[in-house]
Design a protein around this nucleic acid. Sequence first.
DNA 1: CCTCAAGGTCAAT
DNA 2: ATTGACCTTGAGG
Length: 447
Amino acid sequence: MDTVDVKPIIVDGLPFDPLRQYQCKVCSAHATGFHFDAQSCSACAAFFRRTVALGKVFRCQNGDNKCEIVYTERNLCRKCRFDKCLLIGMKKESVRPKKTVNAVRAYCTTSGLKRNKRFATVSVINMAPSIKSPLSAPSSQSTSEPVSESEECQSVQPIVAPSSSTSPTRSVVEYAPMSHAFYRPAPSTLKLLIEEEMRISERRRILFCERPVGSLLGASNSCPFMQADIKPLCFRSFRKSIRTHILLIYEWLRAWPEYSMLGNNDQIALLRKCVLYHTVLDPCFITMQLGDMSKFVMPNGGYVSTREDCDDGWQDEKEISRESKKMIYWPLLDGLMSTIVQPMIDMAITFEEFVALKALVSFQGTMCDISDDGRPIMKHTLDAICRSLHEIVPDGDKKAMRFGNIVLLLSPVFDTALNFVESHHKVHFFDLWHLDSLLLQFLKNKV
DNA sequence: CCTCAAGGTCAAT
DNA sequence: ATTGACCTTGAGG
């Protein structure tokens, strides 16, 4: 990581200013290369890696998210340093999931084996060219070179290779490539969830941000908004955007292969509950990601102030008065902040944990509305989600507690959703303001 | 062989 | 608890 060997760039026949050329784009210290897709020093790279891996959320020391990040003062504001990392193009996805605590290096890839023969627990054999870096399992039948018995090493879990790819005379077990065998396996459920959530963020950016197109495209950031994107909520425009949110939720559901296997009524039940639960959960996580607890940020980038002394987002509108807004939504907001947002911050819930929680809430909360035919499908999905969540919670003494704390968030989400429905029944009954008709249909049904 | 860019470790803070 | 120098590793040339 610290080796410096950057080929000089010739600009117009002259070497580019070398001092500036090798600067870290975050703090202007000496860059050690490209880290997570951006030119930076090793310190900023390590900082970025830790921040992403641990799912940290920071607050700006000055409160304005405008701190200058320079070499001598780069540790003064972690929020602005991290924002700068993202700004210069560091990619969160390039940070790989944290390894399990008990995992021991397996030295099981081709180059690892070549360089570390004495630690090798498996050996290289020739496989069909279609399989990259294939490795054989240590086996009594194996004719390959002997392997070390070092106690430091644990063999990796084998996966059965397609028999057609190997000699028919030898039963061969293929070891998954390093990224799967050694790093925590990324279950397809979790992968799907993360990809889908990133897509939702990208769609929200495109729909609701006023930015140059270049920074809208590319699902590289799990948070749809930056501080500069958000503005005080206008209830009227939020109401106009409700169908867009419902559409995004519908797309999220359709990404599940299991969704198409459900009957029509079950599909509608699931969509109805997802509209409700996502409406509760999504703004909580966006709020946490933006890190300013005085602003509760909705999925269209509008925010309401959570401080009694600030009226942002609460002002009178033609269609709904300040008084009505406060009466209906302040208690809901208060509940959300204390029972969902604050616990999320306290445990520093990661993006991966959040997407698993959201799926858990969606499927668990709908179970009671699903037909007998649909139940096994739902149960199967729920099991997969639980496994994924359990996988991504970091190993250690507190794994069980952390897993438990995440699951405990289900209850306040269900509670708030129930309050949300009750409040909107009142809104509708007393004609306090006109809700979107599609949303009303979802809310009218029993919850 | 080499380089690059990941992750891990641990003394210093 | 966080930082950052230093280390090892895997992939690819």
